[in-house]
Simulated scan of single mutants.
Amino acid sequence: MPVDRSLHTHAVVADTHNDLLMAVSARPPHLWASFFRDRWLPQLSEGGVDVQVLPVFVESQFRPEGALRQTLRMIECAHVLAEGNPDAVALCRDGQEIDEALALGRIALVLALESMPGIDESVELVPTLHRLGVRVASIAHWGRTALADGSGQDGTGSRLTSHGVEALREMERLGIVFDVSHLGATGVAHVLEIATRPVIATHSAARALRDHHRNLTDEQLRGVAAGGGVICVNFLAAFLTEDAGAATLDHLVDHIEHVAEVAGVDHVGLGPDFMREVNEDLTPPCCEGFSYSGIDANAAIPGLEGPRGLPMVTEALLKRGFSEEETVKVLGSNVMRLFRAELGRPGS
């Protein structure tokens, strides 16, 4: 049965995690704008994406010595691809700029940091990155950083370091939304204990349905929601079900439904993490069985390998019993509420 795109088309669709900057910045700089326009823009448009968060993720070969240089290179790539496609996208620093971009029919791009390997203990550089347009950030990935431990280090039971607490405070002061995805369990608890502004999980599924350290427990889901934050559900098959190769759209909707039941439907969003598409751009042809930190990063829900498949999610939510109003919230209005209130707005 063909997907009914009417609701999807009229809703604001926000994707809070697509690593496409990794793929675009891997090209020579003079190709950044055209490669984005030819390879990624059609997918975003066909998928109905209105707001796209662009994480800056620095791969291990650049760490530690080249981490800051690669961070700056990827940020520059985001600016160049936006400036090279002004009819189609706009790099936005606050909710008003997002609304202005959407009114003009452009996709609003929001810069994010996935971990901060380029910062290390130099928290005084957080304002520098804010000046460059960064508006969402996490402080750890799988392993240990100078700021916190990632979820792969849950056994340490570590809270944020003193520099991590300082980074959180700087982000709250500047209006950079703190991202708890990838943060270790004790670190998440620490953030929820001391945060004074809402946080986001840009790409995290429900641990109650798939017991993986990258997913959030019900207690964590409730904690994010209690502070006014949003949990954006990861589409990556390995985080939805133990048998990643057998993941289906129903598995994804199970996670969305669970987060909505536990945290409330006003606190759910979409954080797809289309790894297969990015991997295809980085290592053409895509390597079958590509493994990343012990997971099959190429396993995807059929039809949801990339942004083009997003209308399937809308249809699946409606079939599951979500009302049109609830579906619109999940697709993007919850994220937009958070971004309008917090993005780029200085704190006290």
Rank of each mutant, 00 (worst) to 15 (best):
A137M: 11
P198Q: 07
L21K: 02
P284C: 07
A82P: 00
E242P: 06
M116W: 01
T196E: 15
R222D: 00
A297S: 15
D15I: 04
R135E: 07
L109M: 00
E83V: 00
H130Q: 08
H267M: 03
Q70V: 02
E65K: 14
C286I: 12
A260T: 01
R37I: 00
N215M: 06
L160Y: 07
L7R: 04
G227R: 14
A205D: 10
F36W: 02
Q220R: 05
L44R: 05
E121I: 12
T241Y: 03
R197F: 02
V134I: 11
A185N: 13
R144M: 08
A189D: 15
G347P: 03
V80A: 15
L317Y: 06
D50P: 03
M171K: 05
T202A: 11
A226P: 01
P302L: 06
R37Q: 10
D149R: 09
V313R: 12
G152V: 05
D281H: 13
E121W: 11
T161Q: 06
V165R: 15
L331E: 05
S333K: 07
M336T: 08
H8G: 12
S158N: 14
E100I: 04
V89P: 00
R169Q: 15
L44K: 05
T161Y: 05
S60P: 08
E65V: 10
H8C: 13
L168A: 11
A195S: 14
D211T: 07
A260V: 00
L240A: 01
D99V: 02
M22R: 13
A148M: 07
A208S: 15
G84A: 10
S323V: 02
E59C: 09
N334L: 07
A244G: 09
P198L: 08
F290L: 15
L44Y: 09
A297I: 12
V3L: 14
T202Y: 05
G344E: 05
P42G: 01
M1D: 13
A206H: 05
A238E: 04
S333R: 12
Q70E: 15
D50M: 03
V268C: 07
H213C: 14
G264P: 04
S158D: 13
H182N: 10
V268H: 05
E261W: 01
F36Q: 00
V80E: 14
N234M: 03
L68H: 04
S25W: 01
G105L: 06
S60G: 05
P284K: 08
H212S: 11
V262Q: 02
L343D: 08
G184T: 08
L72W: 02
I256N: 06
L317P: 07
H267C: 08
R63K: 13
F274S: 08
A206M: 08
V80I: 12
E114Q: 13
T156R: 15
E277G: 09
T16R: 13
R27V: 01
V191F: 10
F290E: 13
R214H: 09
A167T: 09
P28Q: 11
P198N: 10
D218K: 03
P302F: 06
R340S: 03
V265L: 11
R337D: 01
R169D: 13
N18Y: 13
L236K: 09
A23S: 13
L72C: 03
G155M: 07
